[in-house]
Amino acid sequence: MSAHLLYAFGGVVLCGMGLGGFILLSHLLRKLLAFNIMGSGIFLILVGLAQHGGGAEPGMDPVPQALVLTGIVVAVSATALALVLIRRYYYLTGQTVLESSAESGRRNNDDDPGSRKDGAL
C-alpha cells in the first residue's frame, strides 16, 4: 500500500460520488459538476494506480500524467461546450432541467406535467 494508492482510492470514492450525483441530480449545472467530479476521480485512479509496485521509483511514470493532461483538456472542452449549451437552453426555455413533457409534441395532453418528476438522466 503505497501513498500513490491512496490517490487511487480517493479517485474511486470521487468516482462513486460523481456517479451518484449525476444520476440523482436533475439540475443541469449540478449534473455537469457531478460529471467533472467523476472525471477527476478517474484521472486520480489513472495516475495513482499506474505507479504502484514495480521497480520504477514512484512518481516517475510520465505516460499517465500526459494522458491525464489530455483527458483534462478534453473534459474542460466538453464542460465548456455543455455550459454554452446549457446557457442557451436556459435562455430559450427558461429551464434548468431536461424535462420530458416537451420532449416532442406528440405527447401533449394525456400527461399531467405536475405529477412527473424531472428525472435524472
Binding site: M38, L85, I86, R88, L98
Partner: peptide
Amino acid sequence: ADALRAALRYLLVALVGSM
C-alpha cells in the same frame, strides 16, 4: 430549443459513456 435539449441529453450521456 429542441435541438439543444437533444444535444444536451446526448452530450451528457455520451460523456458518461466515455468516462
